[in-house]
């Protein structure tokens, strides 16, 4: 990388990895312990029997909780806090859900296609009552495909940061500054992945998932709009304020 020393890349990487480890919501050890704790048949039936509004609200709460950890992740990244406030807000607004989806692969078990939700692992069928099977199955597919890349915690940390600090977001006031930081993160990620993966194309495969991430977020927005048309009072009164601010 021209004009960047290995020392600087290493500093950036270590800062991002530290931030991730501090703000990842569940440690790797906690996730390991929970690994085969799955929701029972009765518990799944219980989720399936909830009304659409109730389950949407529960999911909105969980997503918002996860987003709060992503905000903290961003705040502990030195380069992110050096961006102007406008761009910090823009990047988080447009990227926080994508980062949640990346982080989700840590709490996804590809052996039985279950995700950690409200304390235990459960499959897609748990979310039937939401009435957006396409979105749920797309999210599960994405998590499974990300798991197949067998990313280390460090790689997840750096990839999360690269997804967040993206020049593809409209209305950035200092796109060049964002670009420089993003490039350094990708260089650091490339360096780490070259060491960890036999597959030379591992980073390219990872970058190739980014359009899917964007599509998932668009689909989420569409589903929310459709849901809100039918249940405006649920969204206005019962959804977390941060969720509404970001996605409404």
């Amino acid at each position: 990388a021209p004009g960047v020393s290995m020392g600087e890349l290493d500093r950036i990487a270590q800062n991002i990895i530290k931030s991730h480890l501090e703000t990842c919501q569940y440690t790797a050890e906690e996730l390991q312990q929970l690994a085969w704790q799955t929701h029972s048949y009765e518990e799944v039936k219980m989720y399936q029997s909830k009304s659409r509004e109730v389950l949407w609200q529960q999911c909105a709460i969980q997503i918002t909780h996860a987003i709060q950890y992503v905000v903290e992740f961003a705040k502990r990244i030195t380069g992110f806090m050096e961006l102007c406030q406008n761009d910090q807000i823009l990047l988080l607004k447009s990227g926080c859900l994508e980062v949640v989806l990346v982080r989700m692969c840590r709490a996804f078990n590809p052996l039985n296609n279950t995700v950690l939700f409200e304390g235990k692992y459960g499959g897609m069928q748990m979310f039937k009552a939401l009435g957006c099977d396409d979105l749920v199955s797309a999210v599960f597919d994405f998590a499974k495909s990300l798991c197949s890349l067998q990313l280390t915690e460090e790689e997840i940390a750096l990839f999360s940061a690269a997804v967040l600090i993206s020049t593809d977001r409209p209305w950035l006031m200092e796109p060049r500054k964002v670009q420089k930081l993003q490039e350094k993160i990708y260089f650091a990620l490339q360096h780490i992945m070259q060491k960890n993966h036999m597959d030379e194309d591992a980073l390219a495969k990872l970058i190739g998932r980014i359009p899917t991430l964007a599509a998932l977020c668009t689909l989420h927005t569409e589903e929310l709009q459709a849901f809100q048309q039918l249940h405006p009072e649920t969204v206005n009164v019962l959804f977390p304020p941060l969720y509404k601010e970001l996605f409404n």
Binding site: V71, E72, Q85, Q88, I89, L92, K93, L242, E245, L246
Partner: peptide, 16 residues
């Protein structure tokens, strides 16, 4: 900032 009061406040607050 005006349209994202909660996000702005989260960014301003000291680390939680």
């Amino acid at each position: 900032k005006e349209k994202h009061k909660i996000l702005h406040r989260l960014l301003q607050n000291s680390t939680s």
